[in-house]
Computed example of a mutant assay.
Amino acid sequence: MSSVWPTEITLAKDKRTLHVAFDDGTSFALPAEYLRVESPSAEVQGHSAAERKTVPGKRNVQIIGVEPVGNYAVRLIFDDMHQTGIFSWPYLRELGAEHETRWAAYIAELDAKGLSRDPPRRH
């Protein structure tokens, strides 16, 4: 999987889905919320598995920017101003291939911690 190369990366008009196609013939529609909560940033992943954070309240997050990083990745900028995740081509493909499993684990994690996908209500 380390030699995968994207042939197309497009952001949906509603900014809630990133479409990625790879030269191995696979393609994925990756929801912004999923990409935000699986960001490869230290802020989300920590510096070890024990430091990994469960990110709640991102149901309505949008991607407001997709910036190339060299020829190996993209930086996604989210409307909650999170922008420190560098999504390498292999990581994007991994997220696509493992979407169902990772999403189910995320939902279970939220439930176990009493957290919600919905943002906190403003008073």
Rank of each mutant, 00 (worst) to 15 (best):
M1V: 05
V4H: 09
W5K: 15
P6W: 12
T7F: 03
T7D: 06
T7S: 09
I9W: 00
T10C: 03
A12K: 10
K15C: 12
K15G: 00
T17D: 00
A21T: 03
A21Q: 08
D23E: 13
D23Y: 05
G25L: 07
T26F: 06
T26P: 00
S27K: 08
S27Q: 14
F28M: 05
L30S: 04
A32Y: 02
E33A: 15
E33Y: 04
E33R: 14
E33Q: 15
Y34V: 11
R36I: 09
V37Y: 07
E38A: 11
S39D: 13
A42M: 07
A42R: 15
E43T: 11
V44M: 00
Q45P: 00
Q45W: 01
G46K: 12
G46H: 09
H47A: 11
A49C: 01
A49P: 01
A49R: 10
T54M: 09
T54K: 08
V55M: 09
P56E: 13
G57Q: 09
G57V: 01
N60R: 14
N60C: 04
V61Y: 10
Q62K: 15
Q62N: 12
I63C: 07
I64V: 15
G65E: 08
E67M: 06
V69N: 06
V69E: 11
G70C: 05
G70H: 04
G70Y: 02
N71F: 04
V74E: 03
R75P: 02
R75G: 01
L76Q: 08
D80K: 05
M81R: 13
H82I: 11
G85I: 01
I86Y: 03
F87K: 11
P90W: 08
P90S: 11
P90L: 04
Y91S: 06
R93L: 04
E94C: 02
E94I: 00
G96I: 07
A97E: 15
A97R: 12
T101S: 10
I107L: 14
I107D: 11
A108Q: 10
E109Y: 03
L110G: 08
D111I: 04
A112C: 00
G114A: 09
L115V: 04
L115M: 14
D118S: 11
P119C: 07
P120S: 08
R122C: 03
